[in-house]
């Protein structure tokens, strides 16, 4: 097996799904001739042609609405939103239509659309090329929300998402598109949705994170080894459906929880994890749950490195939590 980047793994998943099933097609802005602004669809236009790799006009409403129509008719469209920051013109199509079609039709009209989109900060993208909007989608019943943190998961989760019968918002951590490489199983590789991964076992503090925060958290955890803090790191991988059992099992073991995400803290995804712990594991907790997140401001340009949770801030929270109780 050779090591590939996360964005190459996305590309591989798309190419293999398209080879395996003629109903799979890709659409979006600059995805065809140009191969995507991040090159996620590189080579697909050449292999599959303009019928299956569709360069669309500049309209996210159009992209998502058309993908819904295709899915109603039986195709498996994978739409790219160039940056997730530009998904909002399509919010109505996603929230009112994509998420509710199956339900409102009594199950007659499933909508197996995948919306792939780069998310997150750390690339000097400022307000509109950096956001982490997972909470909006996780809050919308009927949407699955998936966030890979490494090449193998990117391929496995995307493949599963494409063949899943429900709509999936697939958020790709663009900061680590190329900085993280890893081995990826050749051929069809599926990772089930709703199963978290323990990426570092430990006994003192549980850290829950996903996407581009995983390398940050692992760096923080490693930096605390010398101090004798044994940190367990859980990569949630899929936010909806959520692996509650993995979260609860880890906290029943460690008694301490830190949650890390880039998105703002207030009503962020971490609030749901904290609520689950309060509801189902309160008596296992030896310390208050801590959240290290983006601040409750829009995403700044010049100061993005201070806005984003850094290994130092994460380590600080783990250390403080480990001391309590």
């Amino acid at each position: 097996m050779t090591e590939i980047t996360l964005v190459q793994a996305v590309n591989q998943a798309l190419a293999e799904a398209m080879r395996a099933d003629p109903d799979v097609l890709v659409l979006g802005e600059d995805v065809g001739v140009n191969g995507g602004v991040f090159r996620a669809t590189e080579g697909l236009f050449k292999e599959f042609g303009a019928d299956r790799v569709v360069d669309t006009p500049l309209s996210e409403t159009g992209i998502v609405g058309a993908a819904i129509g295709m899915a109603l008719y039986g195709l498996k469209p994978v739409a790219e939103i160039q940056f997730v920051d530009f998904i909002y013109p399509a919010f109505d199509q996603i929230v009112s239509e994509l998420a509710k079609f199956r339900y409102r039709s009594g199950g007659q009209y499933p909508c197996p659309v995948v919306l792939r989109s780069p998310y997150g900060g750390g690339i000097k993208g400022g307000l509109y090329h950096s956001q982490s909007p997972e909470a909006y989608f996780a809050h919308t019943s009927g949407l699955k929300v998936v966030v890979p943190s490494n090449p193998a998961d990117a391929k496995g989760l995307l493949t599963t998402a494409i063949f899943d019968p429900d709509p999936v918002i697939f958020l790709e951590p663009k900061r680590i598109y190329r900085s993280v490489t890893g081995e990826v199983p050749a051929g069809e590789h599926r990772v089930p949705l709703g199963v978290a991964a323990t990426v570092r076992p430990g006994t003192d503090v549980s850290v829950f994170a996903y996407g581009a925060m995983i390398p940050t958290v692992l760096e923080a955890a490693a930096s605390l080894e010398g101090e004798g803090v044994r940190t367990e790191v859980i990569d949630l991988r899929s936010l909806v459906p959520l692996d509650e059992e993995a979260i609860l099992a880890s906290v029943r073991k460690t008694g301490r929880a830190v949650i890390v995400h880039e998105a703002p803290r207030f009503v962020g995804f971490g609030a749901e994890i904290a609520a689950i712990l309060a509801e189902k594991a309160l008596y296992s907790l030896k310390a208050p749950v801590k959240r290290i997140t983006g601040f409750d401001t829009p995403f700044p340009y010049a100061l993005e490195n201070l806005y984003l949770p850094s290994p130092a801030r994460v380590a600080g929270a783990i250390r403080d939590t480990a001391k309590e109780g």
Binding site: G122, T216, F295, N305, L306, L308, S310, P311, A312, R313, G316
Partner: peptide, 14 residues
């Protein structure tokens, strides 16, 4: 919360 990490060289910069 950010103040201690905000000075240059404080480790706040990843």
């Amino acid at each position: 919360e950010l103040r201690p990490y905000s000075a240059p060289g404080s480790g706040g910069h990843p």
